[in-house]
Design a protein around this nucleic acid. Structure first.
Lengths: 197, 197
DNA sequence: CTGTCTGTAGACAGGGCTGTCTGTAAGATC
DNA sequence: GATCTTACAGACAGCCCTGTCTACAGACAG
């Protein structure tokens, strides 16, 4: 009794792949269900079976974005070495990588939240995402020995959000560089330039 | 031969006032022309006489936002005193003020750009706005004696954008405070804590 | 009086959107 | 072979959207 019998490349996956691509490029509101159906080669009934409301599809899209972006952040931090201090700065490499990516269009969460009614499920999911990321940064800041990890995390995530938000307009990597520079300065100021050891 | 014969509170002003309010609250895409007509007490033909396309109204809305926000930035900087260094930090009071305002919903430019097709007039106007603001900050940084005014301006506007972007979710003033703290740190790092002399 | 300008009031077309519906086909399980 | 699940194909209703159109009313100038 397999819980999921659908093969790889199933209808559900195709729908999600297509939705991810189109939603990110044009925003959920800018993409009709018919377009997703046409481009994913799926029947309308199938789409509505898996995602009874369009909002359900939007939330699934955000979950996928969350995995991708948070994953990229952690990977960038990991690649920066074992020192939490370096990781706090190194995570900004994820921003640089995103800026360089073809079709980069800023933060999917912010973009989607901007066109969604306040207080709705999309906003809630976005707040949740931002909270989880900031909690992770806070933990990093704590391990780095910051006197006020919450403040440092708030400052760094603010920089991340700024870099991502500007991305709606252009993916100029100089933005990511400036963010990284700022992060280095803020981390040094919070921890002392001499290092933690 | 008065160029503008329409009295104060004319149809055009009422349209713009209503559009400003509704566009900011729900995003241009989330507000139909019919709603603007109903709430401003104006005939449809009148609206389309002044703004032949909805996009024209959106651009007029952005112009008004530009005046308001840029004006608030300059006012906050002015209120910080005559030292350009203090002004660079003081302009963040405009962010604090915005966060505290009833109905605060983030950056109108970013929100609008997020739901507009890339390469369109809305994007162009938004880029223009950001460019003008950054040029102003760059001049401030230059007058403050920064070795690299462009970089400092980039960093500070990044913080502004981050604070504004987060505003789509909530107007927690702690965000503005964190941004101001960051600005102080970055300015001190760029100019030296001893002051410009 | 006549024409022009500005505005009101509202019908209308044409299109896109979400979501429901009927009908059909292929494969798995009993 | 019967049945059940999954999916495809597409018509359809009902709504909202932008933008155009006609008809009318008041102010003002010649």
């Amino acid at each position: 009794m397999p819980e999921v019998r659908t093969p790889a490349g199933s209808a559900r996956d195709r729908i999600l792949d297509t939705a991810f691509r189109l939603f990110y490029a044009h925003g959920p509101r800018g993409v009709g269900v018919d377009t997703i159906i046409a481009e994913s080669g799926v029947a309308k009934a199938t789409l509505y079976k898996h995602f009874p409301r369009k909002d359900d599809l939007v939330l699934a899209y955000l979950d996928r974005v969350d995995q991708a972006w948070f994953g990229a952040l952690r990977a960038a931090a990991r690649d920066a070495g074992n020192d939490p201090r370096d990781q706090l700065v190194g995570m900004f490499d994820a921003l640089t990588g995103a800026c360089r990516r073809e079709g980069y269009h800023g933060c999917a969460f912010i973009n989607t939240a901007a066109e969604s009614p306040a207080g709705g499920p999309v906003h809630a999911r976005t707040v949740e995402h931002k909270t989880v990321v900031r909690a992770w940064v806070t933990e990093l800041a704590r391990r780095a020995g910051a006197a006020n990890p919450e403040l440092l995390a708030r400052q760094l995530t603010l920089l991340l959000d700024g870099g991502l938000a500007s991305g709606v307009l252009d993916g100029d990597p100089v933005i990511a560089e400036a963010a990284r520079e700022s992060a280095r300065t803020l981390v040094d100021a919070a921890l002392g330039t001499a290092g933690v050891g």
